[in-house]
Amino acid sequence: MFKKFSTSTDIAGQTPVKTSVQRSLRTTVLSQWKIEPETLDVIWPKKEGLVHVKCREHLSIYTVHGEPIFFQHFDGPIYPTLRVLHKYPYILPMVRVDRGAIRFLLAGAHMMCPGLTSAGGYLPPPGEALAAETPVAIHAEGKEHAVGIGITKMGSEEMRKVNKGVGVETVTYLGDDLWAVQTI
């Protein structure tokens, strides 16, 4: 989503978000992320104005003090930025890719099932299986911090069974153009 993104050409405008809209956004975020309201208040203080940065192709980035904190495509799921995820790694369920997949991910590739099902990879156990279209933190073998954020393209059990094709679509990753934007 942010392989090619430039704050000078891809931003259509910035508007402060109305209080009433902020409230409903907050509810949505709380329902989608595994986060306590009081922790969310630290990332996104109630008294601070949230700014909606409208970008090309129905992409919305939301900022506090100019710092991107989450984004959304159309009315799809709300993703934290990778920097927010690094601070609060538990807010999204995690998957892990093996070491071989890291450099492809850092080039913006989507994650193929074998990279997730191999010895270095990780998918949640059947008891906590992920459904398709779930936002996930993408971790990497041998690394402590997430390397990207993605969305599952099939259920985690299906990934194990089928074991080919794209398992997780990469949404943002370390070093992409959103990562480069520290403040808008």
Binding site: E36, V42, I102, H145
Partner: peptide, 24 residues
């Protein structure tokens, strides 16, 4: 209730990645 403290992540001053990813 108390908010959970964030993980302090160190970022590389050269490439901006967490240092464990500098190799990439």
């Amino acid at each position: 209730p108390e908010p959970k403290p964030p993980v302090q992540v160190l970022y590389c001053a050269v490439c901006s990645f967490p240092p464990e990813y500098c190799e990439f």
